[in-house]
Computed example of a mutant assay.
Amino acid sequence: MKHFKHLLGITLFTIAIGSAYACNLKTPEYKNTALVTKSIGDKPAKQFVKIALLLDTSNSMDGLINQAKAQLWDIVNEFTYAKCGNESRPSLQIALYEYGNDNLASNEGYIRQVIGFSSDLDEISEKLFSLTTNGGEEYCGQVIQTSLKQLDWGKNADDLKMIFIAGNEPFTQGRLNYRDAASNATEKDIIVNTIFCGNYEQGISTKWKSGATLTGGEYMAIDHNKQVVHIDTPYDDIIIKLNGQLNGTYISYGALGREKKAMQEVQDSNAAQMKPAVAVKRSVSKSSRLYKNSKWDLVDAIEDEELEVAELKDKDLPSELKGKSEKEIKAYVAAKKTEREDIQNKIQELNKKREAYIAKNQKEETGELENALLSAIKNQAARKNYKWD
Rank of each mutant, 00 (worst) to 15 (best):
M1K: 05
F4R: 08
F13L: 07
T14S: 13
A20K: 13
Y21R: 02
A22D: 10
L25F: 08
L35A: 09
I40Q: 02
K46C: 00
V49E: 11
L54M: 11
N59R: 11
N59A: 11
Q71L: 11
W73V: 06
I75M: 13
K83S: 06
C84R: 00
S91C: 02
I94L: 15
A95P: 08
A95M: 07
L96D: 08
N103A: 12
L104A: 06
N107I: 05
Q113H: 07
V114D: 04
I115Q: 03
G116K: 14
F117M: 13
E123F: 12
L131S: 05
N134D: 14
E137D: 07
Y139N: 05
T146A: 13
S147I: 04
L148I: 04
K149F: 00
D158Q: 10
L160P: 02
F164Q: 06
R179D: 05
K209I: 01
S210I: 04
G211V: 06
I222V: 09
I240K: 12
L242T: 02
Q267I: 15
D268V: 09
N270T: 02
A272G: 01
V278I: 14
R282N: 08
L290R: 09
D297W: 07
I302M: 12
I302H: 04
E303M: 00
E305C: 01
E308D: 11
A310D: 12
D314Y: 02
D314V: 01
K327H: 05
K346D: 12
L350R: 04
L350C: 07
E355I: 13
N361H: 15
E368L: 12
L369W: 11
A376N: 06
Y386V: 01
